[in-house]
Every structure is written in C-alpha cells, then in structure tokens.
Computed example of a mutant assay.
Amino acid sequence: MIWGQGTHFRRTTVWQMSGALFSLSWNGTEPAWLKRWRIQSGASGFRKSQPGRSGQEARGWGALIPPPLFPPEDPQADSSISPLPHLESKIQQTHSLARLLTKYAEQLLQEYVQHQGDPFGLPGFSPPRLPVADLSAPAPGHAGLPVPERLRLDEAALAALPPLLDVVRRRQAELNPRALRLLRRLEDAARQARALGAAVEAVLAALGAETRGPRPEPNAIAAATVTAGVFPAKVLGLRVCGLYREWVSRTEADLGQLAPGGPA
C-alpha cells in the first residue's frame, strides 16, 4: 500500500474463496463481475481497510467467503442409519474386485505358459498336479457349504497365495529374466491376492463371522523350489498360477451369492 501527496493509491487484496486464492485489484470502484456475484450469492459489500490495520482486522472481506459446499461428515452423527446399505456396498465392491482379478488371473496363466517352452502349451500336454504346501484346489463339495464358511476358505487360500506367487516370481526371474511382463504380472498377482483377501475378511467381519488369526507363511515351498530342477520348478509355478485362478474365480462365485441381484 503506497500513500503520498498527489499520488493515486492502488490496493491489492488477496482472499481465499472455496479453497482457491484469488487476487483482486481495487481502485475504489467495485468491478461488475464482483457486484454480480455479490448480488447472486447474497454476500454483503466490502469495506476499505484503514491504514495501520492488518488484513485480519479488516473483517469486511469475510462476507465474500462462502461457506463450505460439503461440510465434513460425522459418522457418529446419526446412529439410526442402518448398516445394511454399507454391508451391501462392501459386498458389491469386493465382488467387483474378484471379477476383475479373475480376468487378470487368466491372463497371468496364459503369460506363464507362453514363457515356459515345450511341452508347456502343446495340445495334449497334461502336467502333473504337484501338491503345494498349505494350499489345495477348492474341494468338490465347496459349493454346497454355507456362504460364510466358503468365504472363510476363500480368505484362507488368498492369504496363502502371495508368498507362493513371490517364490514363483523369483524362480522365473532366474529362468526367464527378460520376461518382464510376466514378472510384473506375478508381482501384481501377489499384491492383488492380499487386497482381495483383506476385502473378504472385512466382509466376513461385517457379517459377524469369526475371522482367522495370524497365519505363518508357507516356507516349505520356498526350499523345495530352490532345490528343484528346472522342469519341476516350471511345473510347480504352473500349479501355483492355476490355483490362483481357481481361488479367485471361486471367491467371485461365492461373493455372487451375497451380491445384490445374486442367487438367493
């Protein structure tokens, strides 16, 4: 602010409006756009701040700052709100995630087979179904179990998958170091399995079902894979990728029983 004899002063005031900073140059005449805004919004006029008063003391500008458009929500404000819509939303979101990961799991399996060479991918090739520590395929009677029990089995399998996928990725980094997309898919699959497992666990908690305690990571497969030959390691990796696809698909189907519009 500049004051002097015979000098026309010019004042620039900065204020905050709806989270953004605007700068207004004012020479004593209210701009037309500001007048229109003030009339439409119902805000009162502004007053000039006097020399020697700080901007905080010039309280006339407060009238130009509109209230927040969306006041903060208080989740405790209304205890009468039913938890049912929240539960349905959680189930639907988890079901959508499982559906998306089912597609990714199929892509991972195809990518894995493409980088293993013959006889993988050849018509009629049937690799041995090697046992995997702490993880097996969904049992034939899985679909006949109550939905909460099925989801508990899904969550347990999803919790066991990430360390197995990590072992497969490390072995493939040795066998196929240039297969960068495959390595990235394996890394993503481990992370996605953790995310889906946590989401299923949250659904179980919302349903009031008992959740599992801490579970040790399967270290047996790590030692077996490191000492195994190339072909057994490839077969074991194929088995893990196949189990990942089966359990993610199974989880999608089980959540579909609870999702709005699903079977009764």
Rank of each mutant, 00 (worst) to 15 (best):
G141L: 12
F125R: 05
P138V: 02
G141E: 15
H142I: 10
S96N: 09
A139Q: 15
A139V: 09
D134F: 07
E149D: 15
P127F: 01
P119I: 02
P131H: 08
L145W: 13
E149N: 12
R152L: 13
G124S: 12
D118R: 14
A105Y: 02
P140E: 13
Q110Y: 05
A160Y: 02
P119C: 07
A98Y: 00
P131R: 05
S96I: 06
L108E: 03
P128D: 10
A156Y: 06
G124L: 14
L108G: 01
R150A: 11
E111R: 13
S96K: 08
S126G: 06
Y112R: 03
L109K: 06
A133Q: 10
G124A: 13
P146M: 10
D154F: 04
I91H: 00
P140G: 09
Q107S: 11
H115L: 11
S136N: 13
P138H: 02
L122H: 07
Q114T: 07
F120S: 03
H115T: 13
D134P: 00
L135F: 05
L101D: 01
P138D: 02
D154Q: 07
G121T: 03
S136Q: 14
I91G: 00
H142T: 12
E149S: 14
G144I: 08
Y104T: 10
P128Y: 03
L130D: 01
S126R: 15
